[in-house]
């Protein structure tokens, strides 16, 4: 319960910051002003400015958009492709399932970073390319989880009962398997969301993700890396933002799992 609240608050803050940034930011996050370079926190610039004189708060707020955008698309791709694949590998014909599994292992064995670099080379480095690459690289973890948990569900007596009631394979997958693995998939979504945020930051840091001048937390780190010794504030601010986002999504996933499991209802009422 506490996890759910802390996670929801952290994620809520990021969402709120992103939403507000559409209407208002203290300054234009891309406005360069040499006179205002590297200013410390002040009344006007709450977290100071970077080496181009851009306001840090404004960049952080607009960067939150990028973060959420990347997370949603990457996790969406991974969950919508990976989950059905995994369920199919468990419930479908054995030889086809086997092919799906081997293909899955192939993608899993492929370094995610290399995949992102390839995508960047082929389609041009951009936020979209980065998040599709992250999504594709995350598909196997969803497929594996979905397959393992679907196999567990398929071995239960209630699936046997459904078969003797006259349900056929696809109906069992939709009516029994998916609802019963949904909790685990949601947790995986939340955890993967955190990983996707981190991956986007890493790719942007390498110049393979979000391109200037669009603000992104990963790029904020990259642009300030040489100033680590002089102005650690410039790295701490986006670093803390990334860490809090990852923490928030992970806690939220944990809390949601408990929340969605009807079997834990009694335990929740007591605890």
């Amino acid at each position: 319960m506490r996890n759910l609240v802390i996670g929801a608050v952290l994620v809520g803050l990021i969402v709120l910051a992103a939403l507000i940034s559409f209407l208002w930011t203290p300054f234009d996050p891309t406005q360069v002003d040499a006179a205002l370079r590297l200013q410390g926190p002040s009344g006007a610039h709450w977290l100071g400015t970077d080496r181009f004189g851009r306001d840090l708060v404004s960049q952080l707020m607009v960067g939150a958009r990028t973060t959420l955008y990347v997370g949603i698309v990457a996790v969406g791709v991974a969950a919508l492709v990976g989950t059905p694949l995994g369920v199919f590998a468990a419930a479908g014909p054995r030889w086809l399932g086997e092919i799906v599994l081997r293909a899955n292992d192939l993608v899993l064995a492929f370094p995610a970073l290399l995949l992102a670099i390839m995508f960047g080379a082929a389609f041009g480095a951009s936020t979209l390319t980065a998040m599709i690459a992250i999504g594709v690289a995350t598909v196997p973890s969803f497929a594996r989880l979905a397959r393992a948990s679907a196999l567990q569900v398929l071995s239960t007596e209630y699936v046997l009962a459904a078969r003797s009631a006259g349900r056929t394979g696809p109906a069992i997958s939709v009516r029994h398997v998916l609802p019963n693995i949904a909790g685990l998939i949601i947790v995986q979504c939340s955890v993967s969301f955190g990983i996707a945020v981190l991956a986007e930051a890493a790719l942007s840091y390498l110049g393979l993700g979000t391109q200037p001048p669009t603000p992104s937390w990963g790029r904020m780190l990259q642009e300030s890396q040489e100033l680590l010794a002089v102005q650690p504030r410039l790295l701490i601010v986006p670093g803390v933002a990334i860490a809090l986002a990852v923490l928030g999504f992970t806690l939220l996933g944990d809390g949601l799992r408990d929340r969605f499991d009807p079997r834990l209802e009694g335990a929740r009422a007591q605890g």
């Binding site: 209630y158 009962a161 459904a162 009631a165 056929t168």
Partner: peptide, 25 residues
């Protein structure tokens, strides 16, 4: 079936469980 816990889908309401053969057929 034997197991009263395992033979009912924990995520279905009782009315949906009972109606399952009717829906399926």
């Amino acid at each position: 079936f034997q197991d009263p816990m395992g033979s009912l889908d924990p995520r279905m309401r009782v009315r949906d469980i009972i109606a399952e053969p009717l829906v399926a057929q």
